[in-house]
Design a protein around this nucleic acid. Sequence first.
DNA 1: AAGTTCGTACAGTTAAAACTGTACGAACTA
DNA 2: TAGTTCGTACAGTTTTAACTGTACGAACTT
Lengths: 180, 180
Amino acid sequence: MGEKEQLERARARFIDSMAQNMNLYGITPSVGRLYGLLYFSETPMTLDCMKDELGMSKTSMSTSVRQLQELKMVEKVWKKGVRKDLYQSIDDWYETFSDLFSVKWRMGVSLNISSLRKSLDEINELIEDQTTSEELKAEARIDKEKLEHALEYYHWINRLIDSIETKEIFKFIPKGKDKE
Amino acid sequence: MGEKEQLERARARFIDSMAQNMNLYGITPSVGRLYGLLYFSETPMTLDCMKDELGMSKTSMSTSVRQLQELKMVEKVWKKGVRKDLYQSIDDWYETFSDLFSVKWRMGVSLNISSLRKSLDEINELIEDQTTSEELKAEARIDKEKLEHALEYYHWINRLIDSIETKEIFKFIPKGKDKE
DNA sequence: AAGTTCGTACAGTTAAAACTGTACGAACTA
DNA sequence: TAGTTCGTACAGTTTTAACTGTACGAACTT
């Protein structure tokens, strides 16, 4: 039955490619492959089932699936009579992109802004201070300008994140199904 | 001269924070710190100078600065009488974001799309084929639908990348200097 | 041409991340 | 209560990435 294999090969190729490029979302290939497996699975899967399909340890499945759950890419489902935990993929990729992008970038930018503010305050203090030498003040003013320049950029990034988090971005770039 | 140190500490805090969060752009902290150093440097720097400032090997400086060059975050400058290569940071962060985001994402999405197309073709072939069992065809149709769903999403991402690469995004989210 | 200085390739080392196997607690079964 | 089954914490191992030191080619100086 070579045709069955052909289908599986086609599926596997895409899953692999997808898994490889998931680093864009901060997801390792192994975890990505697991997502791909669930994405194409007809029915929800157990840890043991995943383990068998991917040829990895059950421990890995457990931690990977938990990771995917935290990213809201996978959810646990209940089925009466089945004692094992069952998982299935969540297939709204727009939502996933929005979540992942927002979380990752917001975190980084916030940290940067807060340390930037602290530094900016200190530098302002230095500039105000009477005892600071004129020479040092000049240097401080240059730094201040650079920090303010950076701050402006961070605010822009924050607004970009806002528009993605709130889905406002879809007003500008609609989801549509147009050809490439 | 504690005030000099205060300025340096303020600067170092920001550079460190920036460097830590550069993984968002696919840049390691070490390379990020080098960029920060150059960003705040009054004058272009030599490899030896960077090495001394960061306490790392000259080899690392060489490879890191080359990386930053490829990302168009740093450029080589000429100064008559100076034999060593001189480097300075490129400070248009909007441009940098645009470049980095486009390059990284375009690459990944393209690879995914091309493998997706190949798989889609194979599956279509399978569906058309007279010899394929009805059972397998049903399975193939499900896969086909999932692949097409994915393709639609990739096209959206591509349009997002387009808008960032062409700077059209700034029409929607202007660079402005408004308060947060 | 011989002697410097500079930047980078390459091989080796160190540091970090991914993965596995064991072992154990929780929940179920008899 | 004793016996299963399941999922995960933890420690140990393997794999991968980052960094260093040596060594060499290219370009310059004398």
